[in-house]
Amino acid sequence: MSPFKSLGFRAGVLSVLMLVVLLAVWRTATLPDAPAPAPAKTLSAEQIEYLKMMGKDPGAPAPAEAGGSTRSGGFPTPLQTATAAWQHLRDPFYDKGPNDKGIGIQLAYSLARVGLGFGLACLVAIPLGFVIGMSPLLRRAFDPFIQVLKPISPLAWMPLALYTIKDSSISGIFVIFICSIWPMLVNTAFGVASVKREWLNVSATLEVNPLRRALLVILPAAAPTILTGMRISMGIAWLVIVAAEMLVGGTGIGYFVWNEWNNLSLTSVIFAVLVIGVVGMLLDLAFGRLQKAVTYVE
Rank of each mutant, 00 (worst) to 15 (best):
V186G: 00
L239A: 14
A222S: 09
A161R: 07
F174L: 14
P127W: 10
K166L: 09
C179Q: 13
P183L: 03
F177R: 04
F190Q: 11
L211H: 11
V192G: 11
L138V: 11
V248K: 09
I132H: 01
L227M: 15
Y255G: 08
P210T: 08
L239E: 02
L200I: 09
Y255R: 15
Y163H: 06
E245I: 04
I181T: 07
V202E: 11
P159M: 13
I173R: 03
I178F: 03
N187P: 14
G252P: 07
P159C: 07
I226C: 07
R231H: 03
S180H: 11
S168L: 04
L149C: 13
M184G: 04
L185F: 08
K166G: 13
W182A: 05
L160W: 10
W238S: 01
I232E: 01
L162P: 14
E260F: 05
P151T: 08
G250H: 13
F145G: 15
I165G: 11
L185T: 10
F130L: 12
Y255L: 00
A223G: 06
I152F: 02
V202F: 04
L206M: 11
W182T: 06
A214Y: 05
P220Q: 08
G229T: 08
V208G: 01
L216R: 09
A221S: 05
A223R: 00
G133N: 06
T188W: 13
N263H: 13
E245M: 09
P224N: 12
L239D: 11
A223L: 14
L138S: 12
G191E: 06
P136C: 08
W258H: 12
F145Y: 15
I178K: 00
L155M: 13
S203D: 06
G254A: 12
